[in-house]
Design a protein around this nucleic acid. Structure first.
Lengths: 344, 344
DNA sequence: CTGAAAGCGCTTACAG
DNA sequence: CTGAAAGCGCTTACAG
């Protein structure tokens, strides 16, 4: 005999009563409750997760699916760790566990998710690296599993998402660079079909339009999230007959490669090429000269995700206003020294 | 009716037979097997995780506990993503899932783990950020849950671990720096009680001894994993009456802060201060001048961890020689330009 | 306030 | 090769 049965026997009461006491149900005497709690703590008893999940039909855990693409994920640890912490801070208060589900490089993201969903491993799913067209959204919606995406998608309709305000970043950056006299502003875009790539590009185009600047597809560079990518595009930019005088980076780490290549060429960031990065990752903040970029609280993003999740869980209705949450996280400009007046 | 019962009804056979077919047991006709598989695929059926875990007494998933310490994790450290991928590549082949368990900053690591273990959420545990004295090791050993630690500990005895060869790194670095004429070599150590801090320091002391160099506690700097930490220690080193001419970094990202501070002071890495970092993170590899550091395959470390895990799981005995695995991952020197001859 | 019992959705000896 | 049935460890109406 083990588990709750053993505990019950030890106390000389029924397993039902033990269960009710442990779960803080009403209709159990304080005395019994106290004794059960004490014994559970003493014996280190915790209800078996599988049995409880089976009986309750709920796992009390939320899955956060991330992707281990070696190139993309290679420097995104920091990003997710911060978000995880925010998610946890909320879930913990509600007795929910966070399980991070890392989709291996070799596996298809759709099937990876599908399996977890079909087996009922978690009560809700958080999706990252949301694609422009993301079948995972359709899957989750058709199955009816509560979910929140970090990043929008054109798939599905009326679901909860939290995203960075890429439009705001682009507008602020372009306005700033134009005010500094820049007319040819390059842009780096993410490799692959992540949705924020499309958002970034669209915002860029409309910002140029707003300033009456010509859109030149040769000024757009598709890059991986890597230092190497920044190193490479310097030469590509210089090779253009009309080279850009500024560049807006979707992945700020590229600045590291750009700085290095510029140094090799005897050029100076902020003078010979203006650079604006996305997030103020510590790595980039310490470059010399410091990179102009934007700050955002990863923890707050995590908190927002968790709240959007809770709003969908029946067991937690009331704690948060039920309904769909769609929220853009504002990014605040942190002016550095990597951008300056355009030189003709 | 749902789940396996529904599938069984659909096919007009018993749930037992469906289960046996799905699990590839012998004693099921190929014909039945085929039909069941087909129907399962068509209906998107996957056995409920909780029910299966309860019946089998095994969850078929392995937990990887990491810590969300904001200061430590806050650097763009892709260490874990690489390791996860290696672990996955092995586990997947054996039908095991990897669940990453992120311990929130606000929670005690011991109790966080204890709860997961008591509830039987996973069949095995991988531990990271192993402490010099780590009660989690004792816990896991007393409960008898299979586990592998990433990093050694003085707690427990005779358990499986995979660790970086810090001793090798220190020996190679000190030999190299001494050969370059350095006599006063500083060291950065990790904040807190992680075991590799003690290993790093011990190796440093014995390497100095081997070269007949004096050990000076003022040359040891406890740092967080951050760029900021590197920035700060430059001034501290310079302030010493006998300043070090070289520094060996436990956290390579510190090089970024060091570079910045040196630049501000008009000093040059590799000439005015020699710097050797630990791992060749991309961030650091692109600094100018490039940082001398060491390369190691994170994926291989993950593979080794997973294999050490499988060796402990009864269900997978045979695939890997059972027993305790204790392995040091070799780090290969990648000479850069951040260290050079000592200047008097 | 408490106990007895059914049921959650699987797996697995046990018969046949 | 297949079915009927017990059992995994919980939770929860239902009585009392």
């Amino acid at each position: 005999m083990r588990g709750i049965a053993q505990l019950a026997k030890e106390l000389g009461i029924s397993t039902g009563t033990v269960s009710r006491a442990l779960n803080g149900k009403r209709d159990v005497s304080d005395e019994t409750k106290r004794k059960v709690m004490e014994a559970a703590a003493r014996l280190g008893y915790a209800p078996n997760q599988a049995a409880r999940a089976l009986a309750q039909g709920t796992t009390r855990s939320i899955g956060f699916m991330i992707e281990l693409d070696p190139e993309t994920a290679a420097s995104s640890d920091y990003f997710f760790m911060g978000v995880f912490d925010g998610v946890q801070s909320v879930l913990t208060r509600h007795g929910l566990d966070l399980l991070v589900l890392p989709c291996p490089t070799t596996q298809d993201r759709y099937h990876y998710l599908e399996r977890f969903v079909a087996r009922g491993v978690v009560d809700g799913i958080i999706l990252a690296s949301t694609q422009r067209v993301d079948q995972r959204v359709d899957l989750l919606q058709s199955v009816g599993v509560p979910f929140v995406t970090l990043g929008r998608s054109t798939s599905g309709q009326g679901y909860s998402w939290i995203d960075l305000d890429f439009e705001g970043v682009v507008n602020t950056s372009i306005d700033r660079l134009v005010a500094l006299g820049h007319r040819r502003i390059a842009l780096t875009l993410p490799f692959g079909e992540v949705n924020f790539g499309a958002v970034f590009e669209a915002a860029y185009r409309s910002a140029l339009l707003r300033h009456g600047l010509e859109f030149d597809p040769r000024l757009m560079f598709v890059t991986r999230r890597s230092e190497q990518a920044g190193y490479r595009i310097v030469d590509e930019m210089i090779a253009l007959e009309a080279a850009p005088t500024a560049v807006l980076l979707i992945y700020e780490v590229a600045a590291i490669g750009i700085y290095r290549r510029l140094a090799e060429l005897g050029l100076t960031p902020g003078r010979d090429l203006s650079i604006v990065g996305l997030r103020d990752e510590p790595t980039v903040r310490f470059l010399e000269p410091s990179v102009t970029c934007f700050s955002v609280s990863l923890r707050d993003i995590g908190v927002a995700i968790a709240e959007a999740m809770l709003a969908q869980l029946p067991a937690h209705a009331g704690a948060y206003p039920p309904g769909i949450v769609q929220k853009l996280a504002h990014l605040e400009l942190r002016a550095g020294e990597s951008d300056g007046p355009a030189r003709s």
